[in-house]
Simulated assay, not measured.
Amino acid sequence: MSSTTHKPTILSNLPPIFSMLHEAKTKAGLTFEQLAQKIGRDEWYVAAIFYGQAKPDKQDIERLSQSLDVRINYLDEGLGDNFFPHRGLGEFPPQDPVLYRLYEVLVVYGYPLKHMIHEKFGDGIMSAIDFEGHVDKIEDPKGDRE
Rank of each mutant, 00 (worst) to 15 (best):
A54Q: 13
V107A: 10
W44A: 14
M116N: 10
L79K: 06
F131N: 03
G29Q: 13
R145K: 10
G40E: 04
H134T: 10
H118E: 15
M126D: 09
T26H: 08
E139H: 02
S65A: 15
M126N: 07
N82H: 11
R41A: 13
K58Y: 08
L64M: 10
G122N: 12
M116Q: 14
D136L: 03
S127D: 08
F92H: 06
F83V: 03
G52A: 07
I117M: 11
M116I: 12
P56E: 06
F32Y: 15
D57Y: 08
V46Q: 07
R87S: 04
M126I: 12
I125N: 10
E33S: 13
K142F: 04
G133K: 15
H134S: 14
Y74E: 05
G133H: 06
P15I: 01
A48G: 11
H134W: 01
R101V: 02
L79W: 02
E132S: 13
R71D: 15
E77K: 14
E139W: 02
P141H: 01
Y111C: 02
P85W: 07
P15F: 00
A54L: 05
K120A: 15
G110W: 06
F92I: 08
A36K: 01
L30W: 01
I49C: 12
L30A: 02
D96H: 07
D81A: 13
V107F: 02
K120R: 15
Y109R: 14
G88Q: 09
Q66N: 07
S127V: 05
I72P: 03
T26I: 04
P112L: 11
Q95C: 03
F83D: 05
G52R: 00
